[in-house]
Simulated assay, not measured.
Amino acid sequence: MQNQGPPDALFWVMIVIMIPIYAVTIWAMVRIIQKAGYSGWNFLWYLVPIVNIVMFFIFAFGEWPVTRRIKELEGRVFGDLPDPRLNRPL
Results as ranks from 00 to 15, higher is better:
residue 52 N to Q: 13
residue 36 A to N: 11
residue 61 F to H: 09
residue 84 P to F: 03
residue 5 G to T: 15
residue 63 E to S: 12
residue 17 I to W: 04
residue 16 V to S: 13
residue 45 W to P: 00
residue 4 Q to T: 12
residue 35 K to Q: 09
residue 77 V to H: 07
residue 63 E to M: 13
residue 79 G to S: 12
residue 66 V to W: 00
residue 74 E to G: 01
residue 63 E to R: 15
residue 57 F to R: 01
residue 88 R to C: 05
residue 33 I to H: 01
residue 52 N to G: 01
residue 67 T to S: 13
residue 53 I to W: 12
residue 80 D to Y: 05
residue 28 A to R: 14
residue 16 V to L: 13
residue 76 R to C: 02
residue 59 F to S: 07
residue 8 D to W: 01
residue 65 P to R: 06
residue 50 I to E: 01
residue 9 A to L: 13
residue 3 N to C: 12
residue 13 V to I: 15
residue 42 N to L: 11
residue 31 R to P: 01
residue 33 I to W: 03
residue 19 I to V: 15
residue 11 F to G: 03
residue 7 P to M: 05
residue 89 P to A: 05
residue 3 N to R: 03
residue 50 I to T: 09
residue 41 W to M: 06
residue 45 W to R: 06
residue 85 R to P: 06
residue 60 A to S: 15
residue 18 M to N: 09
residue 51 V to G: 00
residue 27 W to P: 04
residue 21 I to L: 15
residue 77 V to G: 03
residue 75 G to W: 05
residue 76 R to V: 11
residue 78 F to I: 04
residue 61 F to I: 04
residue 40 G to M: 04
residue 31 R to F: 06
residue 46 Y to L: 10
residue 32 I to C: 02
residue 18 M to R: 01
residue 65 P to C: 06
residue 13 V to Y: 03
residue 37 G to V: 08
residue 41 W to K: 03
